[in-house]
């Protein structure tokens, strides 16, 4: 795609929306070929807008976009996949919003990353199909790898030594697991048991559906969630805002369902 093209066509996932003026909205889109970009939809907040429903966040949409002087403008939008199950279930909706925010935070504008786009679609597909919440760990691990922050889980992230099969520290500032000798210098982190290390290693080589089918003990799932949250916040140097909603929703479901089973992280 050359910068002289006046109109271009791409598919993309709508990550977020902000209102502009009386009736317009600016949407952040993540696309396979053009990476993340912003464009404005004129009049999209009017009831009669033809594009409105096709630009809802979390929608996979086919887009026609005209280059504008300051902001590009959507001229057509047609849903490819609406991911309805992600909108109509509180837990899945919270997870999908969190995934979308991470894509937004880990990408810079106009840097293509088709592998990351595939990962996003696979994650939404899995969540929409009812995969347990722990598939988001698969997403996080591959997101880190695809954006240059791969978590070191094979050998010590500090000295490269072999790791014995034992409880091991996962230190965000070291970028992965660290051996006992390096622990003191590696800063804070969480101790991950052998079963957890196996899950982290398994995620690298398996497909998302295989990972979704794993049975993970709720306590371990919670520990891995916390450990990866620490890593992500360390990389981003800031809080992931939608994490609060996710935690609040999980708290409510624990409070209201006596046996939450596998669905709770």
């Amino acid at each position: 795609m050359t910068s002289r093209t006046r109109v271009y066509k791409t598919e993309g996932v709508i990550l977020r929306r902000r209102n502009l003026g009386e009736a317009d909205s600016v949407f952040t889109v993540f696309s396979p070929g053009a990476g993340k970009f912003e464009a404005v939809a004129r009049g999209v907040r009017k009831a009669r807008s033809r594009m409105r429903g096709h630009l809802e966040p979390l929608t996979r949409t086919e887009l026609l976009i005209a280059r504008g002087r300051s902001l590009d403008v959507f001229t057509q939008a047609e849903t490819i996949e609406a991911y309805r199950p992600l909108r109509e279930d509180l837990d899945r909706s919270a997870l999908a919003i969190y995934v979308a925010e991470l894509i937004d935070r880990f990408t810079i504008e106009h840097a293509e990353n088709p592998g990351l786009y595939e990962l996003l679609l696979a994650t939404f597909d899995a969540l929409a199909a009812g995969a347990p919440a722990h598939v988001v760990r698969f997403f996080e691990l591959h997101l880190l790898a695809l954006t240059g922050f791969e978590l070191q889980v094979d050998a010590c992230a500090s000295c490269g030594d072999r790791l014995p099969p034992a409880d091991t520290l996962l230190a965000p500032s070291a970028g992965g697991l660290v051996c006992v000798a390096c622990r003191a210098a590696a800063g804070t982190g969480r101790i991950v048991p052998v079963a957890g290390i196996k899950v982290l290693r398994y995620a690298r080589g398996c497909g998302i559906d295989q990972f979704a089918a794993l049975r993970i003990d709720p306590d371990l799932a919670r520990l891995l969630q916390g450990a990866l949250t620490d890593v992500i916040q360390h990389v981003l140097e800031r809080e992931v805002v939608s994490r609060r909603h996710l935690d609040e929703v999980a708290r409510l479901s624990r409070a209201s369902i006596p046996n939450p089973g596998q669905d709770v992280q």
Partner: peptide
């Protein structure tokens, strides 16, 4: 909208223990 739905579902879960019937406006074509 995504946010409107999330809010409705959240309130539904939050009010669940109170045993109040929660309904949603039917959604159709404008």
């Amino acid at each position: 909208s995504l946010e409107g739905e999330a809010t409705a579902m959240y309130l539904h879960r939050l009010t669940g223990p109170l045993g109040v019937r929660v309904t949603r406006l039917a959604r159709g074509l404008p």
